[in-house]
């Protein structure tokens, strides 16, 4: 359904993350999406961009990563140049309806009616639509001088299964009911989502079997159903190798000989071999990812620290910044 030609056009779009206005990070739960998103925000903020990070109806993580208080539905400053908000469909819906019907009284009488509320709950995709609509609204938002209020909207989009629907809903509506007011509102969102100058969609994954397979599947579904400009494939949690291949072979030989008389030495030998086996496993998944998903790859190392603090976010931000520079220069 998606013409290959258009995908190629997107392929030519700049990979300069820091020039985009609408950055969407998606991936399965537990792959470190929030961490990567926070690091991206930090990297952009250091370039003097004003960044709004949007979490979607989730357990809030961004504010905590920056050591700020929970922000909830109120846009709040969580770090220099970084604002954050956790959108809920209820709040977004109210805001949207009030924009349309203008009267708080009507809102209260009609939309806060128990039955209408229940009804809105079950309109397929409505919650998703108001969330993506609200995120898109902030891209359009201007200050009193007519300048964009934020330079970058960074959306931490829900885990894959749901993530794809969330991005697809504007399309479903414009296709299903092309001439409704909802479709009109939606087509603007769709324009933004498909604009390679403003928008970039990044996929975040771990190099583990499940995550890799689901990411491949997600990419397939994106190709089939979404016509969105793709950015980076970000593989998180890569164990740094400690030994050179030759050394691994030597250690493996020593361990196999079972000649170490000391028990602790045996365990240390086995443990470092174990790590390198996992490194090999990760490498094989990286290879699969690269083969199946032809996107610009950023690998983010695993940080062995007991406390996940701002320092780690800073290091990941450095890493992302360098990788984006390389990708842009390599274009």
């Amino acid at each position: 359904m998606v013409p290959a030609r258009r995908s190629r056009d997107h392929g030519r779009a700049s990979l300069n993350l820091f020039e985009k206005r609408f950055v969407i990070n998606t991936g399965k739960g537990g792959v470190g999406k929030s961490t990567i998103t926070a690091a991206m925000a930090l990297a952009a903020a250091r370039k003097n961009l004003r960044v709004l990070v949007i979490e979607l109806n989730t357990r809030e993580r961004i504010s905590r990563l920056f050591g700020a208080d929970e922000v909830g539905g109120e846009i709040s400053l969580v770090h220099d140049n970084i604002w954050s908000v956790n959108l809920t469909p209820e709040a977004a819906m109210k805001e949207y309806v009030l924009m349309k019907v203008h009267l708080e009284t009507i809102y209260r009488v009609v939309f806060e009616n128990r039955l209408v509320k229940q009804f809105l709950q079950v309109i397929p995709g409505l919650n998703d639509l108001v969330l993506i609509g609200k995120a898109a609204f902030h891209e359009q938002e201007r200050d009193k001088h007519g300048n964009p209020r934020y330079d970058m909207i960074l959306v931490d989009a829900p885990a894959t299964g749901h993530g794809i629907f969330f991005l697809r809903i504007p399309q479903v509506i414009t296709e299903a009911v092309p001439s409704s007011p909802m479709a009109t509102a939606t087509s603007e969102i769709l324009n933004l989502l498909q604009d390679p100058d403003r928008t970039i969609l990044n996929l975040i994954t771990l190099t583990e079997e499940m995550a890799v397979n689901e990411t491949i599947e997600l990419k397939e579904r994106i190709d089939e159903t979404l016509d969105m400009p793709l950015g980076y494939l970000i593989a998180n949690g890569i164990y740094p190798r400690l030994l050179r291949p030759q050394e691994v072979r030597e250690i493996s030989r020593l361990a196999d000989s079972r000649g170490a008389s000391n028990d602790l030495t045996c365990r240390l030998l086995e443990s470092i071999l174990f790590r390198h086996e996992r490194c090999d496993l990760q490498a094989s998944y990286l290879e699969t990812l690269q083969r199946r998903i032809p996107m610009s790859l950023i690998t983010v190392p695993y940080y062995f620290t007991p406390d996940f603090d701002l320092e780690v976010i800073r290091r990941i931000a450095d890493h992302i910044e360098r990788s984006v520079e390389q990708a842009v220069n390599g274009e």
Binding site: V97, K100, V101, V110, I123, A176, V177, S179, P181
Partner: peptide, 15 residues
């Protein structure tokens, strides 16, 4: 009608 302003009446009918 109010809901329709918001969702479009065709949509309501479809659903």
């Amino acid at each position: 009608r109010t809901l329709g302003k918001f969702t479009g009446s065709t949509l309501l009918d479809d659903i």
